[in-house]
Write a protein that binds this DNA or RNA. Structure first.
Lengths: 154, 154
DNA sequence: ATACTATCTAGTAATCATTCCTATGTCAAT
DNA sequence: ATTGACATAGGAATGATTACTAGATAGTAT
């Protein structure tokens, strides 16, 4: 028989590597973040996990997301509505933000070279120490564009 | 003698063109916004004008900035700290944000062609209706980089 | 296995930016 | 000058986030 009694999940490993304790809440939050492309806000994370963890506190979600961000496992992004959102994709990429429904998508990889160039040239063109870049496109997603109601007359 | 009794300021003209009423508060806010490069938050605008307008309400500042933004005279930008900031420079350009002191500068014009290209390619590479783009560089400004205290050890 | 200790969680209260509500005041067209 | 629509100011309300704290739990040494 194989010696794989303690199958250590990818998430658990990442937590340990970051020097963070492994708790059920953290594992669940990480699993959710890794499995979604919707760039959830703390509130969305909380709502999603509340059924699984009835005693979960919003506070824990805030703190966990913050710890994971500090550990480099998540990226925090700020949109126009002053609500934080988190992204498990740490690679440099830009975001599409819908002005109507608030949805946030990733831009496709096609832009990546340009983003790298922008970061490089941006860093080179200033005396500041640049350590990160964030780029957002604002507009209307496919769903919202097709529904003229409450959009812009027409 | 010349017939220039009613020297209409640039700001007044812009307000009228936008269909907004001309009030002392609005003129003052516009003047301040045009004269600064510091991308003030509503609070900063309020603090700056309070001496001149002892009765000024933060509310008025919020509303006025909002009206001016809707009229296209200002641009609202969102940084990492979930505090709104406003920019009288409506031309497309990116921002430098200091992670330590919060200062916000404009990037120099050198990046403009790249930003235009990014907006064009970004719009072309998605089915969404893109109407705006925002790009921020995060790091440490000259002052904060030179002061190691509370920065990052060293 | 047990005990210990640092860290984590949850719950409440506090904070901060922003918006809502409304009475009063003011601009500008007649 | 009169008037009606829009602005302002002030206080209360909202909503996201953080602070504080007591109790629970993970990880480690025994």
């Amino acid at each position: 028989m194989q010696k794989r009694q303690f199958a250590v999940s990818e998430e658990e490993q990442a937590l340990r590597l970051a020097g963070l304790r492994v708790t059920p809440q953290r594992l669940a939050i990480m699993r959710y973040m890794k499995g979604t492309k919707s760039h959830p806000s703390p509130e969305m994370v909380y709502d999603h996990l509340k059924p699984e963890f009835p005693g979960l506190s919003p506070n824990t979600v805030y703190q966990t997301l913050h710890s994971l961000e500090e550990a480099g496992l998540l990226r925090r992004i700020s949109m126009e509505d002053n609500v934080y959102r988190y992204d498990a994709n740490v690679e440099p990429h830009a975001h599409l933000v819908c002005r109507r429904c608030g949805r946030v998508d990733d831009t496709n990889g096609y832009l990546e070279p340009l983003l790298h160039e922008l970061l490089a040239k941006g860093s080179a063109s200033t005396s500041w120490d640049i350590i990160a870049m964030d780029c957002c496109f604002y507009g209307y997603c496919d769903d919202c564009r097709e529904r003229p109601d409450a959009l812009r007359g027409e």
